[in-house]
């Protein structure tokens, strides 16, 4: 059974590039993957499905893709690390170079 650490908690949203740090949706503050707290709720397919319904999309860290479809979520969540949300870095807009 997975440890009761932020990493395995449904409220933990990892940073897009540095996933050990993130944001906790329950405590509404920054969090670290090794953190613990009494609000811990294990990531489960049901929780992810409900996040998918609520937000329209969840994120597979392993594949680096956004999932918007229920059956795709089921596939990824079997072996991959899927999270309910990620922290998008605000530097991306500034850092990005135009392309195409």
């Amino acid at each position: 059974m997975a440890e009761e650490r932020c990493r395995n908690c449904v409220y933990f949203q990892p940073h897009i590039f540095f996933p050990y740090i993130g944001y906790c949706d329950a405590n509404e503050k920054p969090a670290h993957e090794h953190g613990t707290c009494e609000k811990f709720k294990k990531v489960s397919l049901d929780e992810l499905l409900s996040a998918l319904n609520r937000k329209g999309g969840v994120y597979c860290i392993t594949c680096g893709v956004t999932i918007v479809d229920r059956s795709e979520l089921e596939n990824h969540s079997r072996e991959h690390r899927v999270v309910a949300g990620i922290v998008f870095d605000e530097a991306i807009a500034a850092e990005a170079r135009s392309a195409d």
């Binding site: 940073h15 993130g22 944001y23 503050k29 920054p30 922290v87 870095d89 605000e90 530097a91 850092e95």
Partner: peptide, 10 residues
């Protein structure tokens, strides 16, 4: 510094 994780890249 209670940084916002959205600013990590900086």
């Amino acid at each position: 510094f209670s940084l916002d994780p959205r600013t990590l890249s900086k």
